[in-house]
Amino acid sequence: MKILTQNPLALSGFIIIVAVLFIAIFAPWLSPYDPNYIDIHSILLPPSVSHFMGTDGLGRDVFSRMLYGSRISLLVGIVAVGIATVIGTFLGAIAGFYRGYIDSIIMRFVDTMLSIPTFFLILAVIAFLTPSIWNIMIVIGLTSWMGVTRLVRAEFLSLRNREYILAAEAMGASDFRLISKHLLPNSLTPIIVTSVLGIASAVLTESGLSFLGLGVQAPQSSWGNILTDGKEYIQFAWWLSLFPGLAILITVLGYNLLGEGLRDLLDPKNKNQKK
């Protein structure tokens, strides 16, 4: 908490994320309309006092749909990226720390995963799973950890021979201690950056999955599918693309600011800098 009050930017990131979480949790009380209420007599209305963000192709209130959609988009972003980050960091750390055989095996596995067409993997999965948000999050998480692994491994390889690591090793620190106390905190930069950007990608991937039959199914909304729907109407209804785009942007910015604060907090290299 201290770091938040000291760093106004991290604080603002924190506030943004808390605000979005608040919206997601309290969507039913904040929404002026039922997000699935169809009114074919008021389709594609531009933003106005009664419809803050306009209406969509079936006359549903976009603002309410955005509020409800934030639940799915937030959840998908955080959980999917969480899965990817944990797997990616774990494998990357092991590969970069032990090098040699273990490194080769893990990295060849990464290469294989990268070469396999995710798209087909998802199509194959659809045949066996029913659509649910949990399946979406698991699928996105399990198919997007490879970048993290490579970056963490690279960072570890470069840190592995630094004097302070060698010194700690000479003093008899255990592998676990070396990794968790010395190497990992120094590798936070790439992890945080990938995760922050990964959240935004996950939100967009989710909308791609609904098209394939695995994602959120109609009439439920998510930022991703409001945005995709907006493409159909772009010549006429700009608001259908603008608002979800803005929401994704603000959330990603929020995560980034928060991520930076987190990095300041956890990164030992920054400590000597603080007065």
């Binding site: 935004a200 994704i248 942007l249 990603v252 910015l253």
Partner: peptide, 11 residues
């Protein structure tokens, strides 16, 4: 750069 990243490409 974040605007560039988050802005929908098609838009």
């Amino acid at each position: 750069v974040f605007i560039g990243f988050a802005i929908p490409g098609f838009w």
